[in-house]
Computed example of a mutant assay.
Amino acid sequence: MRNETPAEVVPVRFDTKIAVLLREDLETWQRLNVTAFLVSGLGTVAPEVIGEPYADADDTGYLPMFRQPVLVFEGTKERLTAAHAKALGRELPVSVFTSDLFRTGNDRDNRAAVRAVGRADLDLVGLAVYGPKNAVDKVLKGARMHP
């Protein structure tokens, strides 16, 4: 008789990756803020990344979260620029955070600040990318895991 492993015990593997790349010279508060902003829109363009809602033992409901980990990397300004170009070239969903966004205070001004600068001249401090694991790995080549 063959022993079967219950589905709940088998580790879940993903063929996709959610990754954030931050510029290495950011302050700690900026890293946290930028990461939160970058991943916030992902579920709207890739709803499959959102898992089921949570509930505790008292049946209190909580919001659903990503169904897979978000990996955070860091790199130089040049690494960010290269990753941005690679992600766009591979037509992967990308969000960007530029240095100008540290000086704005609302969504309208954030979008206007990005709109005012051409793609090649964006002063990127972070980006998030989602897609097939191998494609995201190629986009992030040369970046290192955030400490």
Rank of each mutant, 00 (worst) to 15 (best):
G89T: 01
L63D: 14
P47W: 04
T44N: 09
K133I: 06
A57F: 11
G43T: 01
L63S: 14
V114W: 12
L92D: 02
S99V: 13
E24W: 02
T44A: 09
G118K: 14
I18F: 10
A112R: 15
Y130P: 01
G89E: 03
F102P: 04
T16M: 08
P64C: 04
A85K: 03
L21M: 12
P47E: 03
T81F: 12
A116M: 13
L63P: 09
T98R: 12
T44K: 13
D107N: 13
T44C: 03
T98M: 12
L21G: 00
E8K: 11
A128Q: 04
R119D: 15
I50F: 10
Q68H: 12
L38G: 05
A120F: 11
K138R: 14
S40R: 04
T35W: 04
R2A: 11
G126K: 03
A143F: 02
E74Y: 00
V72Y: 00
M65E: 09
R2D: 10
P64K: 02
Q68G: 09
L32D: 08
K77H: 12
T44D: 08
T98G: 02
L101R: 13
D137K: 04
L32R: 07
G142W: 07
P64I: 02
D58I: 06
D100L: 14
V72W: 00
G75E: 01
R23H: 05
N110Q: 15
D123G: 13
G51Y: 04
E74R: 00
T60Q: 15
A143T: 00
R31Q: 13
V9H: 12
E8A: 14
F37N: 07
A87T: 00
R23A: 07
S40I: 01
N134Q: 10
R115S: 15
F97E: 05
L80Y: 00
D109W: 14
K86Y: 01
D15V: 06
V20M: 02
K141G: 04
D59R: 10
P147Y: 06
Y130L: 06
A112P: 05
V12C: 03
A116P: 13
D59Y: 12
D100T: 08
R23V: 06
P132H: 05
L140H: 00
E48F: 07
T44Y: 11
A116N: 15
F37M: 08
V12K: 07
L124W: 05
V12S: 01
E8Q: 11
D123A: 15
A46L: 09
A36H: 07
A135M: 07
Q68M: 15
V39N: 00
T104S: 12
R144I: 07
E78A: 08
I18H: 04
L21E: 03
G142A: 02
N134K: 05
V94K: 01
L63F: 13
R13K: 09
D109E: 15
R23D: 07
A112Q: 14
M145A: 10
L101Q: 15
S95T: 11
